[in-house]
Amino acid sequence: MKIITLPHEPAVRWPVFDSESEAAVLQILRDGNVSTHPVIRELEQDYEAFTGRRHALAHNNGTSALLAAFHALGLQPGDEILVPTATFWASVLPMIWCGIIPVFCESEPVTLGIDPADMWRKITSRTKAVVIVHLWGLPCQVDEIQQVCDEFDLRIIEDASHAHGAVYHGRNCGAVGDISVFSLQGDKLAPAGEGGILLTDNADYLERAACLGDITRIIELDSPARRFAATGMGIKTRIAPMSAALGRVSLRKLTESNRVRNENHRWLSECLENLGFDCFLPPTGIGRVYFEFLIRHRDPAFETSRFMDRLQSLGGQVSTPRYPLLHEQPLFREGHVARIGRFPEDVRLPDYAGISFPQTEHENRRLIKLPNFCHPCEKLLEQYRDAFEHAVRSH
């Protein structure tokens, strides 16, 4: 007999675009400039104000923004970047096309971010940077990571794609790295359909990123780099104005939409914490958001798979995390990285086929993904609480 009987669609539907979103897009169409409209600069200014950054550069998606970030750091083929294996592939794969070697690291169990202790173990003379990811909207251990980076003079690329509105000890996520990136893809907290934002306080990084793929911006440079205005670096990464218009409206609505998600998820989290679950509630000084709602039982031996089967039979929409671990994927296991990357002949790649990450693999198996409750849904949340109570009693 099902306990969760209410429809999910009204509570979980995302994204939701309203009349303000429609008007923003229609204005672009009426203006007629659907390629280089000033709304792109307006979106960039919005994100500069939102994060406190000096410079923003809009891209056609977050993947392109990450590619620009790797390019902007001026790294050379054969350099290494430390990356988590528990992340979306765009945090990692663009660096391969630059000839940069991804070196996978464990994730620590508290925030599921890259493990500073494993970073120490993986650093070599070729290590130049680290990618940090605030997975699912929970800021990672930035201070501990920064200590390692300061010791070894490493740059930080911050993938804040899950973390629009999250705060780390008074600093907005998106303002933590030497270069930071947001995705504006349709599932994200401030969606634009497709889009990405690169942010930095370093004017040289901004210039290199622009030279990679925004010819319009290169033309406006007042530096020797303007000589590349006719060609750029051969890639086009500029965002479409209609996406930029959507992104501006979504960012304006972010505070309220995050408030509703947080209230829903915190209420249910407090109920589930009393049943023995760890719901990744943030400690003092950390303001998390909910790109996705992940929990785990505090008992490492808890039979997660069987418990999820029980919840599903009670009407719950629960599943495993959406991202497979990257080191387990055929691209790495079957040697394709060596074929697509432009690596120096004297560089030896990691043994991607032979590596394992027992801590990350163990924690990943424990995670239960719940729906994102994006809209007021008190009765549905109560049904989820009741279903969990019933499943725990019968587990």
Rank of each mutant, 00 (worst) to 15 (best):
residue 98 C to W: 09
residue 138 L to S: 08
residue 181 V to H: 01
residue 257 S to Q: 11
residue 29 L to Q: 08
residue 266 R to S: 06
residue 145 I to S: 06
residue 99 G to A: 15
residue 84 P to C: 12
residue 166 A to V: 06
residue 97 W to C: 01
residue 188 K to H: 05
residue 23 A to C: 10
residue 128 K to Q: 13
residue 181 V to T: 04
residue 129 A to H: 00
residue 300 P to N: 10
residue 169 H to F: 13
residue 23 A to Y: 10
residue 124 T to C: 11
residue 242 M to R: 14
residue 149 C to R: 01
residue 169 H to W: 13
residue 225 A to I: 07
residue 164 H to D: 06
residue 308 M to G: 11
residue 357 F to V: 10
residue 120 W to K: 15
residue 195 G to Q: 08
residue 300 P to L: 07
residue 350 P to E: 03
residue 361 E to Y: 00
residue 360 T to D: 05
residue 88 F to H: 13
residue 389 E to P: 04
residue 49 A to P: 04
residue 52 G to K: 08
residue 360 T to V: 09
residue 50 F to S: 05
residue 321 P to M: 11
residue 45 Q to S: 14
residue 95 M to H: 03
residue 13 R to C: 07
residue 183 S to Y: 01
residue 342 R to W: 07
residue 47 Y to K: 04
residue 197 I to R: 05
residue 81 I to H: 03
residue 68 A to F: 04
residue 132 I to G: 02
residue 157 I to S: 01
residue 194 E to F: 07
residue 220 E to P: 01
residue 153 D to N: 15
residue 142 V to W: 00
residue 122 K to T: 06
residue 10 P to A: 15
residue 283 P to G: 08
residue 279 C to H: 01
residue 375 H to F: 15
residue 95 M to Y: 03
residue 38 P to H: 13
residue 218 I to G: 01
residue 269 S to T: 08
residue 59 H to R: 05
residue 393 R to P: 00
residue 300 P to A: 14
residue 36 T to Q: 14
residue 314 L to C: 07
residue 17 F to A: 08
residue 283 P to S: 15
residue 181 V to R: 00
residue 108 E to T: 06
residue 246 L to D: 04
residue 272 L to Q: 03
residue 314 L to W: 02
residue 176 V to G: 02
residue 84 P to Y: 07
residue 266 R to V: 09
residue 338 A to W: 03
residue 266 R to P: 07
residue 301 A to V: 09
residue 176 V to M: 05
residue 57 L to G: 08
residue 42 E to I: 10
residue 152 F to S: 05
residue 149 C to W: 00
residue 257 S to R: 14
residue 46 D to S: 09
residue 202 N to P: 00
residue 73 L to C: 12
residue 240 A to D: 00
residue 283 P to L: 09
residue 33 N to D: 14
residue 27 Q to K: 13
residue 141 Q to K: 15
residue 75 L to Y: 11
residue 105 C to D: 03
residue 11 A to H: 04
residue 320 T to P: 11
residue 185 Q to E: 13
residue 161 S to F: 05
residue 325 L to M: 11
residue 278 D to C: 15
residue 269 S to F: 06
residue 275 L to P: 01
residue 243 S to Y: 13
residue 151 E to L: 12
residue 337 V to I: 10
residue 232 G to Y: 06
residue 297 H to L: 01
residue 211 C to W: 05
residue 172 N to E: 02
residue 36 T to I: 10
residue 120 W to I: 09
residue 341 G to P: 05
residue 209 A to D: 02
residue 8 H to C: 12
residue 316 G to M: 02
residue 342 R to K: 14
residue 168 Y to S: 07
residue 112 L to V: 11
residue 20 E to R: 09
residue 129 A to M: 02
residue 35 S to H: 13
residue 257 S to A: 07
residue 241 P to K: 13
residue 366 R to N: 09
residue 245 A to M: 12
residue 18 D to G: 10
residue 339 R to Y: 12
